[in-house]
Structure formats: structure tokens, C-alpha cells
Design a protein around this nucleic acid. Sequence first.
DNA 1: TTGAAAGCGGTACCAT
DNA 2: ATGGTACCGCTTTCAA
Lengths: 340, 340
Amino acid sequence: MSQTPEQSAERPVPTSADVARLAGVSRATVSYVLNNTAAVRISEPTRCRVREAAEELGYVPHAAARSLRAGHTRMVLLPTAHVPVGPLYSRFFNELQWALRRLDYTVVQYGSLGLDGDEAARAWAELRPVAVVSLGEVALTRQGVAVLKRSGAKAVITLGPQQVEGAHSLVMDQREIGGCAVAHLLERGRRGIGVVMPQEPGLELFSEPRLEGARTAAAGTGARIEPLTMAYGEESAAVLAARWRGLDLDAVYAYNDEYAMLLMRALQDEGIDIPHEVAVMGADDLLLGRLLRPRLSTVQIDLVAGQRLAELVDRVVRDPGDEPERHDLMGARPLHRESS
Amino acid sequence: MSQTPEQSAERPVPTSADVARLAGVSRATVSYVLNNTAAVRISEPTRCRVREAAEELGYVPHAAARSLRAGHTRMVLLPTAHVPVGPLYSRFFNELQWALRRLDYTVVQYGSLGLDGDEAARAWAELRPVAVVSLGEVALTRQGVAVLKRSGAKAVITLGPQQVEGAHSLVMDQREIGGCAVAHLLERGRRGIGVVMPQEPGLELFSEPRLEGARTAAAGTGARIEPLTMAYGEESAAVLAARWRGLDLDAVYAYNDEYAMLLMRALQDEGIDIPHEVAVMGADDLLLGRLLRPRLSTVQIDLVAGQRLAELVDRVVRDPGDEPERHDLMGARPLHRESS
DNA sequence: TTGAAAGCGGTACCAT
DNA sequence: ATGGTACCGCTTTCAA
């Protein structure tokens, strides 16, 4: 039996000791050379030998060992439960990543699908990130934040819809969005306003505050707010559209552009005239919303620039003494097109 | 000056030694208790004391230390340059994450924006992941794969459009998609076929093979394939539409549904009849494609089930001796609606 | 200019 | 049933 054990046996992962041996120097010297340690002068010939040896062995430093020794990491953890949806978030994520990398942080998204808030926080804490930026897909609790900070996180930043935690964090207030949409509809004379609540799990953290914002905006105006459950699909939209006439509504804010587009089409198929009978409002300003007729009115969301958020992370990491501030990181404004 | 040094000074991160001290036992015992080590019997009272101490201190184990000692991790690295776009990928990502977590892997997305293939591979290797699943956003080279394997990765799996690497990897062939779209258009009697190439950076890895597949499908049929550059925006679509009549094309495969929707609307605004004058074909089967009129024909892509891919990862990790197989993980089939 | 050695936090073997 | 301890890979003083 010529069992061929994989490299695990025949080619153990090279360590700095291997490099040292091959170069005929000590591990210390290897470390100095490969890190360009300024405080120490190593002769040029030695440097070359070390570098060649490292190259030859395909040496790659062991991040865990390094950070264990250093006592800290440069890791910024971005928890993700569901991959963020929509071009808005994608752009934001990419910007943030770029900006953090430029500041020499390692950006790691930790998949936390199916973990509850505190379990998730513990799992993150095991990686000893220097900062955690939660976009609110996982509901972080006060205890969760405490666990993270106790495990060495200098900055724990919440961008989620929920209120400030027991610690460092700032808020991206989703309520503004619902409020903005409803204010626009009220301004245009609508009084019976449906608010679509997505049936899909994981969106409650966004949809609930948006509904709350809608209610606040309508309070005292005599207008009626009517929550309407709908799933992301044509069937569900059709079902809702079929019972529309009985609802006595003259407007709807449909969570975001995608739900709005689905519902608008279903309403049209039902013979309902948009915007005369019903005004439709989305959110996110998706490009595709402009392709439908009538063009979809929407709430344009100014997400914080990734750059700015990265700078904030960096500031808090360098000086964690700051009081947890609350920043306003989002602006929302109505974009009137044709559907409202 | 009452400088208040943050917890870093006053409350160092608790270690298992702290737990041991507080519980009045040894570090070994702490480890046994907290890991439920089966090979060792610890008395119930002791277990309790240890657990209470850990709880009180808010102890969280240090993943780096643990994996350093263990000599391996359970980390599966998913490199991401741009956050994956589109519901198709989102679903796939989520499924994969779920499935891997169920197999007790830690899923980490490593942001590699702005890193070149080999730099990226080195950066990933520093984390010593047990597996790397690259969706092809970062072009992995043969050397990159070698670096990863040498650093202990048991499985390196490429889902990208590029060909098999020098090692373990399997291919999601994007050419099928272009081929499928064009075959459908040919079947319907079209002979002058435009292929939209997105101007956006980072998509070449997908668009080029799709174009190649389109060309292959058209070869020998007498049909003409015409690459057309277009950006993701209404202006660019309008520009392309304006010069359409001069192109002498009776069909277009527009990379994916989003570009297809943009272009179709622009063509309609130009007074061009879809599908009589021009047949339009997208890809991805986005829900929103069904909302336009005419409904968008598309290529439905059967992405490998995350579950299946996770099982493959696990199999390769457990037995890396396997020859790098090439699996076909994607099916593509045309979905005829109204625009073609 | 270079090397020896301590130690970061856990784990697991070997004693007791 | 528990404790002592070596060791994982790397950095960093201190000594030579």
C-alpha cells in the first residue's frame, strides 16, 4: 500500500525557524529582516540570505502567532448575517473596506447567520478584533458589547436601527426613512397610507423602525397608517393587490424600491391607476425604479461615506477614552418622480 | 492629572489563568471544564466553580492562542473584493455560510479589495485557513494556490470563471451563460447579436468568458457577434440605444438582467420595438425582470447549492489526497418570456 | 551585527 | 480528580 500522505506529513508548514535554519541565522534575525525593524541594523548580505530563504520556502508569517505575541490585532470585524442586499449597502461596504484597508486594518466579515446576539458577540470576541462595526443585521445587546470590550475591542460601533447600546456606538436611524416617505405622501394630500412590511425574516430590524417613523410622521395629521404584510414575490404582491380596493387606502410606502416595484406592478395589473388612485413610494433610489412607468418615487438615502466611518473607527481605536457619541450618519429625502 | 487609562490598564483581558486563579484550580482544569474534555473526569463542584469564575470574569477564549496550539483552524475563508452583487449570489453566499457553519466551520469573508492575486493569497495564508473558497472576484494564480496550500490550506476551491488552477479547484464556467443566451437567440432566428460588456471594473472575469461562450455558440452559424460597451446607468444605455439603428443588429444579450433592463428601456424610448425589431436577453432571472413589459427573457442560472459546495469543502478538508477534480457546478438554461 | 531566551494564551501529556 | 509543564510561532528585550 503506497499511501501518499499529503504534504501535512512530508511538508510541514514552514516557520520562521525554518527560514532561520536555511539562512544560517537566528529566528530573531529573520524577524528583524522580514519586518524591516528600524531599531536594528542588519547587514545587507544577511538580509538577502534571509529573504531568499523565505522566498524559497514560501514562508508566510502566522498571523495568529504574531497577534498573540503582540497582544492585539488590527482586525476590524464586520458581522454579517445575511449578505447585505442592495447596491446601496454594497457600495457602502466596499467603500468602508477600502478606507479601512488604507488605514492598515484587516477587514473581516464574520458570518453570523443563525447566531443569537450574545452567542454572536462571544464568537466575535474570540477573534480579538480591535473594532467591530455592526450594521445591525445582528441585534447586539448591552451584554454583547460588554463582552466585546472586555475582550479587547477598542471600538464597537453600531450602525443598526436600534438605539444606542450600553457602549460606544452610533446610530443609523431607520425611522427617518419611513418618516420621510410618509411626510412626502401627506404633503401630496394622501390620507390613507399603507406601509408594506416584508415577510422575509431578518428585515424586522429595518422595517419596524421604518414603520415607527411612518407613524410618528402621521401622528396628529388625521392620516391613517396601515401596516401590510407582503413577501418578496409576485404572488404575494398579487394577493395584496387583489384585496386592495377593500383597504380604502390612497397611498402606500412599500419598505423599499423592490417591494414597491412588485406591488406597483401588481396594482396596475389589478387595474388600479398609479398615482391617481394610489400613490406608491419606495426607498433606496434603485436605478431600476426609473425604468418602470410611472417612474417610481422613492426615498433617497445618504448612507454615511465609508471613508468617514473608517476614520471614526480609527479615531476611536486610537483613543477609546471618548464617550460613546451618537452621530447622525444618514440623511433621507424624498425623490418625487411619477408614482406619487 | 487624573488620567483615566482605559480598561487596557485597569482591566486586562481575562485569560484562562485568571479563571483558574479565581476558581482556585489549575489552567489545565479550566481547559478541561470549558471544553468538556471527555477523556478527563472533573468533579461536579469543581466544574461549577470554574464555570462561575469564567462567567464572572466574562472570560472568552482566545481563538488565536487555541489554533496556534492546535496547529490548525476551522476557518473557511471566502475572499471578497466587491461585495457580491445580485440576489443570486447573495442567496448562494447565505446558503454556503449556513451549511459550513453546520459543519462546524468558521466562515470568514476577507476583504481583498485592491489586492492583486498573489498579494491577496499571501494575506489569506497568514490567517491559516483550512479552506479557501474563491468565487473568482480575485484572480487566483497557480502560485497563489501553492502559497495557500503550503501554508496549510487543505482545500482551495475556485468557483471563478477562469480555468482550473495548478491545484484543487473546480470551475463555474461562465461561458455556458453566454453560450446559452446566444443559442436561444439563434434558435429564434436572430443573426446579428450584440453582446453587452459592462464598463464597470471587476466584472471582466465574468463578462469576458460570457462573451467567449457567445462567440463559440455563434461559430459556424453565419451569425455575427458584436461586443458593445455599456455602463450601468441610464445615460450610457441611452447613448448605446441612440446609435443602435446603425449597428444592424436584431438581438442583444446584455450580460445580465440589470443591464438588459436598462438597455431595453432605452431602446424602447428610442422607438425600437421589442422583440420584433430587437430581441433582448438578460441573465440571472431577477424577479424584477418580470415587471417590465415586455417581460424580460433571461438565462436562468442554477448556482450550485451552497449545501453541496459545503459538503465538498468538508470532504476535501478531511481527505486532501483527492486529485483536484473538476466539477460542473452550474447549469444554465434559457427562459423564454416576451422580450425575445 | 547577531543570538539566546522569555512569554503571549491555550491544550494535552504525564504525574501525582 | 487535578496540577505541572512543554510547546505552538512569533516578537522583543538583553547580552554578547
